[in-house]
Design a protein around this nucleic acid. Structure first.
Lengths: 167, 167
DNA sequence: TAACAAAGTTAGGTTGTGCTAATAAAGCTC
DNA sequence: GAGCTTTATTAGCACAACCTAACTTTGTTA
């Protein structure tokens, strides 16, 4: 909303541009190359939109693009993609952690990731890391699940002692 | 990424439109009316952009707009605004909870809220609610803070018993 | 109440991101 | 290697959301 600070944007790219870089990166990682048609399919746009964007990304030095000859990411592009991938994972993991189903978490992560400031994503990532380091599923998550289902909170659960209930 | 489902969008409005409705709502709540200049200031856009959007929102029946005479929200607009406000609060509270500072949480909430599916926001809200219902700050949050600062996790903290440490 | 200031609007432009239809290059296949 | 298919590109259009500059309405005040 406030735009002054909105420009604390992660990297200097638009949401759409970031999306393209991410997809190109993951296609290359998976198949060794990224074809226009595949990028288009992944982003649910038409091929001309991809061509168009490739030209723009090339101008900004995120990719090297030769017409009819495919794309590769520049060092700058790879760096960006890796940052984006990390934040995407952090976000998705977090959503899954609080019980959003995997598919939806994936979608939502795609949408949200371009909007969060770096600091916030990092907090989130930290939080997930913290939880994942736990030897078992931490009780508060179990309690939360239970609360969601039943609306009940485990009594006194933050008072003194507690037994981990096995479900 | 996948756009098929991306269209599980909260309401049928663009991000920008939602932002305007939210701001108008909160200005009216605060001052009793919403002037073009104030909306513009709040959204960090110029007055003509506001006028323009008001015309569109009027056409879609979210506001009643008469030129030079100000805006009011329709029932439909109020309903939307309330939904948006709720999700905004949920999101912001959540971010604050995991330690994002209030101002940044506010900004990020503004950005993100338009992008999340309803289900995910609801999960988040539920989570915050759950945490807030705790009689004291739940230990996992304390532990998380500690982990953030020092990188250490409290040993065995999820094993059997635990004393709440008073800071 | 005439005149000026403030607030809002219109007209017209720009940019980003998408589209379709038409065209061109590349890659097969006989 | 001629011709067909697939893939990619160009050209040209559309639309959302912004902008500036010029204009209009409203409100104030001398």
């Amino acid at each position: 909303m406030a735009n002054e600070l909105q420009r604390t944007k992660p990297i200097g790219l638009s949401e759409a541009e970031e999306g393209y870089v991410e997809v190109i990166y993951s296609l290359i990682k998976e198949h060794g190359y990224a074809r226009v048609a595949d990028v288009a399919a992944a982003l649910n746009v038409k091929p001309p939109s991809v061509t168009n964007m490739l030209q723009r990304l090339d101008k900004h030095k995120f990719v090297t693009y030769k017409r009819y000859r495919g794309v590769v990411l520049t060092r700058k592009g790879i760096q960006l993609a890796e940052t984006l991938e990390k934040r995407h994972r952090a976000l998705k993991n977090f959503l899954v952690m609080i019980g959003v189903n995997a598919e939806r978490a994936e979608q939502d992560a795609c949408e949200i990731e371009h909007k969060m400031t770096r600091e916030t994503v990092e907090k989130l990532a930290k939080f997930v890391e913290f939880v994942n380091l736990a030897p078992q599923a931490p009780p508060f998550l179990e309690h939360f699940k239970h609360y969601e289902k039943t609306g009940e909170r485990p009594k006194q659960c933050y008072r003194k002692n507690q037994k981990k209930e096995s479900k």
